[in-house]
């Protein structure tokens, strides 16, 4: 390794410990390394800004479990109930529980679809890996079952496939490697929208497209050519529902 390459390597990562042979023989690179380590200490100290006292915003109360939506019946103290009354009560509890679950699954916070999509992308950062390893056909088929949609690899290099919940519905969450980085695709056969919605943001260059009775969200990094991906995805995804 030449001096220039070695110096570039420690400039990129001062903890670089490769090529010890070159370092031991090159006084110039030894001096440069010492200089860079000193610079690194100064950078670290300069970056450590004083942090003001923590102010936690007023947090809204959120529903934390399905139990929140099930009414708890008071203990009744009167005479034993007859069998038909027991049946009626049991039915009421079941209905209340089902309603509770239904309410929970339809989104208690009433966030817009776009908000939910952005929040979901935020919370699965590990999906956004830059990689050239495609998911297997089996994995893709299990996440995008044939009775939901048909999706093949012609859309691009699919490197992530997971079933996720958006707006109370399980939807296939895929990541395709775009030109500028990973691009998130959410296939939402049950989310009907009337017109395309743009998802704006520095790093959220995206769109939700109406497709049949559902929609597809495509979210990439700023500057990503989404049009090409849109065309590919629209060509390769067909709703079966």
């Amino acid at each position: 390794m030449k001096c220039e390459e070695y110096r570039e390597a420690i400039e990129a990562d001062p903890s670089f410990d490769g090529n010890a042979g070159h370092l031991s023989e090159c006084a110039g690179c030894q001096a440069y390394r010492t200089e860079m380590l000193a610079l690194e200490q100064t950078i670290g100290r300069a970056l450590r800004l004083d942090v003001p006292e923590l102010r936690v915003p007023e947090l809204p109360e959120l529903s934390t479990s399905k139990a929140d939506n099930v009414t708890t019946l008071r203990k009744r103290s009167w005479a034993p109930l007859t069998t038909p009354t027991w049946f009626a009560m049991a039915a009421t509890v079941v209905v209340a529980a089902l309603l509770g679950i239904r309410l929970l699954s339809t989104g208690i916070e009433h966030q817009s679809l776009a908000d939910q999509i952005l929040a979901h992308v935020d919370h699965e950062p590990y999906a956004l890996r830059v990689t050239d390893v495609a998911v297997s056909d089996e994995r893709l088929a299990s996440v995008v079952p044939a009775n939901v949609a048909r999706m093949d690899h012609s859309a691009g290099l699919i490197t992530y496939a997971q079933s996720c919940v958006i707006n109370g519905h399980e939807v296939p969450h895929l990541v395709i490697q775009g030109e500028r980085g990973p691009v998130t695709i959410l296939l939402m056969p049950q989310e009907m929208i009337l017109e395309a919605q743009i998802l704006a943001g520095e790093n959220v260059n995206g769109v939700i497209l109406p497709v049949g009775n559902g929609s597809i969200a495509i979210i990439g990094e700023s500057g990503e050519s989404l049009e090409r991906i849109q065309q590919q995805v629209m060509k390769s995804a067909t709703w079966s529902t």
């Binding site: 102010r55 936690v56 915003p57 947090l59 809204p60 959120l62 934390t64 916070e109 929040a119 979901h120 935020d122 919370h123 699965e124």
Partner: peptide
């Protein structure tokens, strides 16, 4: 502040 609010709402994720 905004991030804390968003994190709170989505903590279960």
């Amino acid at each position: 502040q905004e991030s804390l609010m968003r994190a709170w709402k989505s903590l279960d994720a």
